[in-house]
Structures are given as C-alpha cells and as structure tokens.
Write a protein that binds this DNA or RNA. Structure first.
Lengths: 175, 175
DNA sequence: CCCAATGTAAAACGATCGTTTTACATTTCA
DNA sequence: TGAAATGTAAAACGATCGTTTTACATTGGG
C-alpha cells in the first residue's frame, strides 16, 4: 500500500470516531506511523487531509449504493451500519464542525450530497420507470438521511423503519 | 435577565454555528460580556456549559412540538427551520464531536432523544387512537430526523417532503 | 568515490486551548 | 468607619494546537 493510502486509512477512523477538530495531527501521525513532515508532504494540511478522507469515503459509499431498487438502497445502508457502525453522516458532521468555513471541506461535502441526491433520483426513476418522481425521490432522500441520523441512538431499527416506510411510499407512487 | 441566562443566550448561537470544540472560551466570555472567572463560577466548565445550553434548548424545542397531530409536528419543524435556520440537530452534532466521551453531554443528549421519541409516540397514538403504532412512530421519528439533517443542504424542501411522506404513512396506517 | 537529492525523525515555532490565580474595585455589616 | 466579603478584570498557567524547520540518515548518478 502506498503512503497516501496508509495515511487516509489511518485518518478516517480517527476523524470518524473523535471528530475533525478534536483529532490532533500528532494522533494522526502516530496512527499512520509517519513523521509530521511526511504527512504534510502528502496531505498538505489538516483540512486537505480531511477533504481527502471524505473524497475516499465518498467513493466507497457511492459504490455501495450502486443498486437498482429503493429496497436495495436501504439494504445497502443496513449493511453499512452493521459493518461500520452508526455515528451519523461524516460529511454532515464535518460540515457542521467547521461551520462551512473551510472551503476544501465545504466543496467535497457539497459535491457528495449533490451526487448522492442524483443517485437516489436515478434509483427512483429505475424503480418507477419513465422520467421519475421528483417528490418521491426527495422523500427517499429524507428517509435515508433520517435512518443514518436516527441509527446513532436507535441502531439498525432506524434503518428497518426507513426501509418499511420507503416500501410503502414506493407502492403508493406505483398506482 | 440574570447572569446565567445571559451566558446561555450568548453561548448557544456560537456553539450552534461553529461547533463545540471550535468555539473557545474567550469567544464565549466576549459574547457574554463577562470575565472568564465569572463565567466559570456560573457554568463550571466548558462541557457543563454546553450541557446547560443543550438542556435549555431542549426545553424550547420540546415546547414547540407540543402538538396533537403528525402534520402539526412537521409544521412545527417547518417553523423552527425557517426561524432558526438548519444546521442539523445540535444534540447529535455535539454528541458526534465529543465521540460520546463527555459524560455530562452524553447524558443530556440521551435524555433528550428519549423524551423526543416518547413525544412522537404520544402524537402518533393521539392521531391513531388506541394504544398507538410502534412501527409507525419509528417511521415518523426517522422522517423527522431526516428532515432535520437533509434541511442542511436542501432547506425547507426537506421538511415539506417529510411532511408529505408522513401524511401518506399515517393515512395508510389509518385504514 | 564524492556529491546532490530524497525521505524521515524530532525539535521548535507562535498561537491558542481550557482553566486558575492574582490584583483590585465595590459593597455589606458591625 | 473599618473590616470582611463579593464580583470582576486581566494576567498567567501548563498543555496542546497546526505547521515549519533543523538535523540526519539513505540512495542514485557522474
């Protein structure tokens, strides 16, 4: 594994579990097994490192939701939550921590949410056929975000509830 | 207004907009117009101050959702978002920032979410009559959390979508 | 065989962190 | 009126923040 991947793999769980601001560079360098100078050479800055972690996470996440149905979308979230735990959306948490004041972070968050929303619209369109239903897509988006957020304190039950609700809404939109 | 209220009123928007960790005590004292010693006398510590802010916020929030129908619940959220803006649930954001490692904060977050969930169960029970529908209540909870989270980047449209979805689910549960 | 270049470790940078202490007004009561 | 007490402002605390610099190995080419 190359240095950059080592850095990102070490940084992601730290940022995820302790937050962006509360995670110091010394903890990041220790986890990566590198000197701070090496880490800065590859990452540029703490904000850039966070942005890179988010970009890598987006790739992994978007791959997970390459599905063809709404039910499969929530099944994928169920898998994600069971494998990675549920501490809420890292993108939104980081955006909240920085107040949107860190351009590199704000940019990757905005890009991710845009791509995420487009992906859901595609899935809904595939499910319903035709041009798709914009308001149903927004409802599915809200259910997905809600499952992610509520899973923090409700666990997988929140995902199950969202999945059932989505099924009802899709069935309603079909007829 | 007494000193404690002054402190909380000054601290809440700072924590809300810049996050818990990124908001320094000097900014808090400056906003409250007090010396750090006075602030510490009344608040105890930064974590205790954050916990007090959350406790006060819970009172305000829970008062807002003293409603008798699911639709009124989302109408209340719509008001909240338009008046206070949408930066996501402060309780979950703070819990995320601290990783659950700050007992005073974790306690107030847990208590709030428990009360919040109970309140939704009551509303659903009032709407449906009888003992209530546990799985519908969980779905409404997820929609509420989802609207709160998605409103960060979708604005009031997320609340509207959640409201419409909730209406569909409630109507389905009625028959 | 030496020199330039590359990569790392670790010390050091000023700044700021949350918190405590010191110093000084003002007030309260005997 | 004088002494104890209260409340505040501001300096100072050690610790840690993100980042840069210094010092030192190791390596590749002329």
């Amino acid at each position: 594994m190359d240095t950059r991947s080592t850095i990102l793999a070490a940084a992601e769980p730290l940022f995820d579990r302790h937050g962006y601001t509360a995670t110091g560079m010394d903890r990041l360098t220790a986890a990566a097994g590198l000197s701070s100078r090496t880490l800065y050479k590859h990452a540029g800055s703490k904000a850039a490192l966070m942005a890179a972690v988010l970009a890598e996470r987006e790739g992994r996440f978007m791959q997970r939701i390459e599905v063809a149905s709404v039910d499969a979308l929530f099944a994928a979230l169920d898998d994600w939550v069971r494998e990675e735990g549920s501490r809420g959306c890292l993108f939104l948490r980081t955006q909240g921590e920085t107040g949107g004041d860190t351009p590199e972070i704000a940019a990757v968050v905005t890009a991710h949410k845009q791509a995420f929303r487009a992906r859901i619209a595609e899935i809904v369109a595939a499910e319903l056929g035709g041009s798709g239903d914009a308001s149903l897509a927004e409802q599915i988006l809200v259910l997905f975000e809600g499952a992610t957020a509520a899973a923090v304190y409700r666990g997988p039950a929140a995902v199950a509830a969202a999945r059932a609700a989505a099924a009802t809404l899709v069935a309603g939109a079909r007829r």
